[in-house]
């Protein structure tokens, strides 16, 4: 796939995602650092909330549009829109044109937004041509390929390529890193027993690698797997891949991890 040559200092609008905003701001700041280090000028429009995916996937197109529509104007002035999530980036880049297909008046603007929206790690490697990172992480990690990033956006080698440049870090692959963790948005609460079976198979696969840290690029999947590992009493640390790549692991304990100071 050929990538357009980016402007020397592209203006990036960060779509931080609703889950990162509320649960894990460290991922947002990791994204900002990675983007700035790569030469981007980063801004975060304050009025953003969510991409509308929960409603879109629940069949409620009206609500999805209501939430999604403001993003079209909000991000119009940026060269790129970047999200630390394959799922939300996929929603904007792959599904917005379908969602607004019946509104010809704004469809061109929607398509322009879709075309410039990227998932964080693949944006760094494929558009900004980041090859190496000057960070340290002593540990063995395993990487879960979140479904939307993998199958909608082709995010597979990019995070592994960057992780391999982190000094002190070793990757041990799961048997089935591409198998869904059972999150699936509202699926995990609508069908908790099936979701439980899926995430149980996933945590068994994770544990079998012997890795001490689990990484992925989507907070929904990470919260599902971290919550299950925690329930099982596992001490495997769970982090968004951006936290490692930005060298910001000291900003917060792992997801669902105990606060070392016991606050």
């Amino acid at each position: 796939m050929t990538s357009p040559i980016p402007p020397v200092r592209p203006r990036v609008g960060l779509f931080v995602t609703c889950l990162v905003d509320m649960f894990r701001p460290t991922v947002g700041f990791s994204a900002v650092k990675l983007l700035e280090d790569a030469g981007c000028i980063v801004d975060m429009p304050m009025d953003q909330t969510c991409c509308g995916q929960p409603a879109f996937n629940s069949g409620d197109r009206d609500s999805a549009k209501k939430v999604a529509r403001p993003l079209i104007a909000m991000f119009a002035g940026y060269d790129y829109v970047v999200a630390p999530s394959g799922s939300c980036a996929g929603m904007i880049s792959k599904h917005f044109p379908e969602l607004f297909a019946d509104e010809p008046a704004i469809l061109a603007d929607v398509k322009a937004l879709s075309a410039k929206t990227h998932e964080l790690v693949s944006f760094l490697t494929d558009i900004m041509q980041v090859k190496t990172l000057n960070v340290q992480f002593d540990g063995t990690v395993t990487y879960h390929d979140s479904c939307s990033g993998l199958r909608e956006l082709g995010v597979k080698q990019q995070p592994r390529a960057l992780l391999q440049t982190v000094s002190g870090l070793a990757i041990r692959e799961m048997k089935e890193p591409e198998t869904c963790c059972g999150f699936g948005g509202t699926f995990c609460v609508k069908y908790p027993e099936i979701s439980g079976k899926m995430v149980g198979d996933k945590t068994a696969d994770i544990a079998a690698t012997g890795a001490t840290t689990l990484l992925a690029g989507d907070l929904g999947c990470l919260m599902n797997m971290a919550g299950k590992l925690r329930r099982e009493g596992s001490d495997i640390e769970v982090r968004h891949v951006a936290e490692i790549l930005a060298g910001m692991t000291d900003h917060a304990p792992g997801i669902a991890g105990r606060d070392p100071e016991g606050k």
Binding site: D21, F23, R24, G196, M223, G227, R230, A252
Partner: peptide, 26 residues
């Protein structure tokens, strides 16, 4: 760092702990 149960979140906590937010929003 995580909740074992939470009212109205039984679908989630039936299977897994709920990771708690860091504190302030991004």
């Amino acid at each position: 760092g995580a909740l074992r149960s939470l009212p109205f979140a039984g679908g989630w906590t039936q299977i897994r702990d709920l990771p708690v937010p860091e504190g302030k929003t991004f």
